[in-house]
Amino acid sequence: MTRDGTPNAAAVGATKQSFAILEQLGEQEGCGVSELAESLSVSKSTVYNHLQTLRSLGYVVQDGDEYRLGLQFLGLGDRARQHHDLYHVAKPETDSLVEAVGERAQVMVEEDGTGIYVYQSLADQAVRTDSHIGTVVDLHATSVGKAYLAHLSDDRLDAVLDRITFHGQTPDTLTDPEALRTELDEVAERGYAFNDEERTVGMRAVGAPILSADDGRVLGAISVSGPTTRMNGTWYHEEVPEMVRQSAQIIGIRATYS
């Protein structure tokens, strides 16, 4: 199966198992063989063999009876991000946006039907959640995701929506594809999207698409997020959207002509 759950005849079982173990380790501070075997429903010998192979390659570190991800992943992740042009042009403008709003901002690109944060910047008072650089987010449950989707061509939008699993992350998450399409039409018209506690209860966000300045192609999206206690009223509905939209426009120009 691929990331979105579709069958893949070329998938290699052993590789999938190794990555399942790595993803499980990524969610924990440390795991033992028995814990991993139970959570993944595989034998302890299978888990042990995979762990020893990954340890020999430097991607897993053993500490007593527990295993954790090795720091070698930092190098891979940074190289992957460095190869993405949008990261370089978006970073300074995102930092400036954070200074202006005093919250948290993130830049997202789409890959295989999901959103991935390639950059994030936080003000001192910003509320930290589970999101960080490298976080994979559902496009239908985030303002960056909806801003991105709203500016795809019809054919591309259909293809991406077919890959999305519409599960609810909070009681306010849109899980009906047709309802999402209706909202995307509104987002496309006004130029920005809202996330009203749709991914995390108690948090709101405003996102805008990053568009190529020459052909209008959507490159990614940027958003500002903060607690509902501060993201409300005119500030949330008018002032922040305008600042986010302007930052997205600047990034799009720099991405096109740099």
Rank of each mutant, 00 (worst) to 15 (best):
F73H: 08
S43G: 14
P227I: 10
H50E: 03
I222Q: 00
G77F: 07
A141V: 09
R190K: 15
H140L: 06
A188F: 01
T256G: 05
L36F: 08
H132T: 13
T173M: 03
R156Q: 14
Y119D: 12
P7A: 03
L180G: 04
G58Q: 03
R163Q: 11
E239D: 12
T15R: 11
F19E: 10
Y117F: 14
E198Y: 01
S247V: 00
F19M: 11
V127C: 03
T129L: 11
V218C: 06
G145Y: 04
A188T: 01
S223M: 04
A255W: 04
H237K: 12
K16F: 11
A123P: 06
M1N: 14
H84E: 11
V201Y: 11
P227L: 07
Q82F: 07
T228R: 05
R68D: 00
S153M: 08
E183D: 10
T142F: 02
D196Y: 05
A105T: 02
G207Y: 03
K91R: 14
V244A: 00
R128G: 10
V109S: 07
L51E: 04
Q106P: 05
E110P: 03
T182W: 08
H140V: 00
Y148F: 10
G77C: 10
A80T: 09
H132D: 10
V127N: 04
E186T: 13
A10C: 08
T165N: 14
G168N: 08
L180V: 02
E183T: 08
E239Y: 08
Y48M: 07
L97H: 02
D176A: 04
Q249T: 09
Y119G: 04
S223N: 15
E178H: 07
Y48Q: 06
Y148D: 04
Y87L: 09
I210A: 04
V98N: 00
E111I: 13
D138W: 03
L71P: 07
L22E: 03
Q125V: 13
H167S: 07
L69P: 04
Y117V: 09
G233K: 05
G70S: 10
R204V: 02
Y48P: 00
V201C: 12
T53Q: 15
G220I: 05
D138H: 14
A208S: 12
I164V: 08
I116L: 12
M108E: 01
D176P: 02
H237A: 13
A213C: 08
L157F: 08
H151I: 02
L174A: 09
L152Q: 05
H83Y: 11
G13T: 14
R217T: 13
G168W: 01
V60A: 07
R245F: 15
Q106Y: 09
R55M: 15
S212W: 09
E38D: 10
E38S: 10
E178N: 13
R156N: 13
I164W: 06
W235Q: 13
A80S: 13
T173I: 05
